[in-house]
C-alpha cells in the first residue's frame, strides 16, 4: 500500500466516522462535531494529494486547506450561534425535536 493510499484510507475512515456520528447522534452539537470531522477528512485528502501529487511546488492543496480551515472556523461559529439561538427558542438541542421547518 502506497503512502497516498494509506492517507486516503485513513481519510475515508474518518469521513465515515464523522458521517455516522452526524447521522446517529441526537445532540445538535455532536452533529456539528461530526460534520467537522468530515471536513477534516477532506482536508487530509487535500494534504495527501498535495504531498504525493504531481506539482507540489504550486502549493494548491496546502493553500486550499488553509482556506478550508478558515471557512470551517466561520462555519463553526455560525453553526454554534444557530444552535444557541435555537436552544434559547425551543429549550432543546435535540435535532430530532427541532422540526419546525417541516413542510
Amino acid at each position: 500500500m502506497t503512502p497516498l493510499a494509506g492517507c486516503l484510507l485513513v481519510s475515508a475512515l474518518l469521513f465515515s466516522i464523522g458521517l455516522a456520528g452526524a447521522l446517529t447522534r441526537r445532540s445538535a452539537i455532536l452533529v456539528l462535531a461530526g460534520i467537522e470531522l468530515m471536513l477534516n477528512a477532506a482536508n487530509l485528502n487535500f494534504i495527501a494529494f498535495w504531498r504525493f501529487g504531481a506539482h507540489p511546488e504550486f502549493l494548491t492543496g496546502l493553500i486550499f486547506v488553509i482556506f478550508s480551515i478558515a471557512v470551517a472556523a466561520a462555519e463553526a461559529a455560525v453553526g454554534l450561534a444557530l444552535i444557541l439561538a435555537i436552544y434559547r427558542h425551543a429549550r432543546t438541542s435535540d435535532v430530532s425535536e427541532i422540526t419546525e421547518m417541516k413542510g
Partner: peptide, 18 residues
C-alpha cells in the same frame, strides 16, 4: 403528500444525501 418527505429532521436529509 410530498411534504411528508420534508419532515424537518436534518438527519433524515443528511442520510438521503449519504
Amino acid at each position: 403528500l410530498l411534504s411528508h418527505l420534508q419532515n424537518g429532521r436534518v438527519q433524515n436529509y443528511l442520510r438521503v444525501i449519504a
